[in-house]
Nucleic acid binder design. Structure first.
Lengths: 136, 136
DNA sequence: TCGTTGTTTATAATTATTCTAAAGAAGATT
DNA sequence: AATCTTCTTTAGAATAATTATAAACAACGA
């Protein structure tokens, strides 16, 4: 449970002006116990439902990208026509239920350590992501 | 080096009629030594270049999807605006050079074994994919 | 050869995302 | 508080990838 005040500080600390819209988006994204997987469209609809206030789609895009850039959101690679984001920005992996189009977190302990025994000169590893697809 | 005749058989065996267009696409996709990573648009352009014959974009989409369904192509999960495919349908992983937008194969030996120590009732694992993003 | 069914194609439609430019709000300065 | 600057929001247009449509065409079987 985070308070409005905390969100305002968080935004200020990131040199993002604490606007009504951004605070509403924070409420929806970060005011929850469990990690949250979503598409922009999910979020767009949830904001209306949860806060009663409408935020334009463009602002949702802007804000999600801003939060992603600041490291408050993580983009999840799935083959789908829509981009998925995750409020859990720690290093972790995912199940993807292909039929239900649903993402499920894998704790780091759920996946053994991953050793990459190859390197490309001049490049360093930015991230290692495992995606486990599930079928019935 | 596969021959035209082999492609025709391959197509027939999959109950896909061996049309000129499909055979051309096979030549471009499967008549090569190394694995091939591509987007639909890459392929569309390559067909013109390599075979001299033009195939409509819609047919490229149709054929790639048909081949994917038959298991001759693999879709690769990357966060990008375009969908990537791979002619290497065996179980393997990838580097993705974020800057150059280029995929590089990881042999299975290059990645230690991956243990998934969690399961979802009623679901079974369809695939396990590792994507290693690279930066400079 | 003829009829059936599958395929190709140009084009239109759809969908996710980004761009644009004008109106509005936040922050700093006096 | 009034003003100025800068950032933000917004509706709507623009773009880009993909999918749908429906008519012309080609492969197959009888």
């Amino acid at each position: 449970m985070s308070s409005k005040q905390e969100f305002i500080e968080k935004l200020r600390n990131s040199s993002l002006r604490p606007t009504k819209q951004r605070i509403n988006i924070c409420e929806v994204l970060f005011n929850r116990d469990k990690t949250f997987h979503f598409t922009i469209n999910d979020l767009f609809n949830l904001i209306k439902d949860k806060t009663g206030e409408k935020v334009s789609l463009a602002t949702v895009y802007n804000t999600v990208h801003a939060f992603h850039k600041k490291g408050y959101l993580k983009e999840i690679p799935i083959n789908s026509n829509q981009t998925y984001f995750d409020t859990n920005v720690t290093d972790h992996h995912h199940f993807f239920d292909v039929k239900e189009e649903k993402l499920i977190d894998l704790k780091n302990e759920d996946v053994g350590p991953i050793e990459i025994q190859k390197s490309i000169p001049g490049k360093k590893i930015k991230s290692v992501e495992v995606l486990v697809k599930l079928e019935d």
